[in-house]
């Protein structure tokens, strides 16, 4: 355990959070492909997609407002909110859904037996289920990221905030005896976003960009009234 002693002297834990600026989001979906590529998300195919089973850890929800000709489309990227008080966690009978010390809402694939209560109880409908074993036409599977598990039939999955990147960043920082620098670790979606609508960082660091942006008076949480304490702060789109 000696290497854990080399954690930053201040001993503060990390608290990973995201900010999504709806005034910047253009619905380009670069984040969606980035997420698929990074996290070995299956290609569901037309049939499964038609059955409503296409797996997306991040999706762009579009809401229409008004009537023609004064109609507006609003985009909202929705991914796991990594709730501080997550409704999916207590309902899992086998502890497959649990909270990590640095604020992530984790899903233990090996433990999951597929009762799917977490999926029902998630008010954001971000949990995705593997209804069948995944399949990649050869040689598409060559692309799979070796740092991320391929999920088998019968288990629940969802956004991890690219936990494999966070771990790698933390290990690197530990080796060098420092905290993870702001912007050093970002999930794939944040990395790809052309308009920088997505920001990611440590909320326990008051100087991080994510902390500063989250303090914006445009900030709100999705379904805040449920008291789930999401780790994602949305910034309102201006009219």
């Amino acid at each position: 355990m000696s290497e854990h002693k080399e954690e930053p002297q201040d001993g503060r834990p990390y608290k990973w959070e995201m900010v999504i600026d709806l005034d910047r989001c253009t619905g380009c979906e670069a984040c969606v492909v980035a997420c698929h590529a990074e996290n070995n998300i299956r290609i569901s195919g037309e049939q499964e997609a038609a059955d409503g089973r296409a797996i997306n850890w991040i999706r762009i929800e579009r809401y229409w407002e008004g009537e023609y000709p004064n109609v507006k489309a609003r985009f909202m990227p929705v991914l796991c909110q990594h709730c501080g008080n997550a409704p999916c966690e207590p309902v899992c009978p086998v502890y497959a859904s649990y909270h990590t010390p640095d604020g992530l809402n984790a899903q233990v694939y090996n433990r999951c037996i597929g009762v799917r209560y977490c999926g029902n109880n998630c008010p954001y409908t971000v949990r995705q289920f593997n209804w069948f074993d995944p399949h990649w036409d050869a040689p598409l599977a060559e692309q799979l990221n070796p740092d991320v598990t391929v999920r088998q039939n019968g288990i629940m999955e969802k956004c991890t905030f690219c936990v494999q990147r966070i771990r790698q960043g933390k290990e690197q920082a530990e080796k060098e005896g420092r905290r993870v620098r702001d912007g050093e670790v970002v999930p794939a979606c944040v990395q790809s976003c052309p308009t920088s609508a997505l920001l990611f960082g440590d909320r326990n660091d008051p100087t991080s960009r994510v902390s500063q942006s989250a303090a914006s008076d445009r900030g709100f949480h999705l379904l805040e009234e449920l008291g789930t304490h999401p780790a994602i702060t949305y910034l309102k789109r201006l009219p």
Partner: peptide, 15 residues
């Protein structure tokens, strides 16, 4: 043998 997908369940109706 093939998967729980033989049901017609899909998000958000998991049960």
């Amino acid at each position: 043998r093939t998967g729980i997908g033989r049901t017609n369940l899909h998000p958000p109706v998991f049960w």
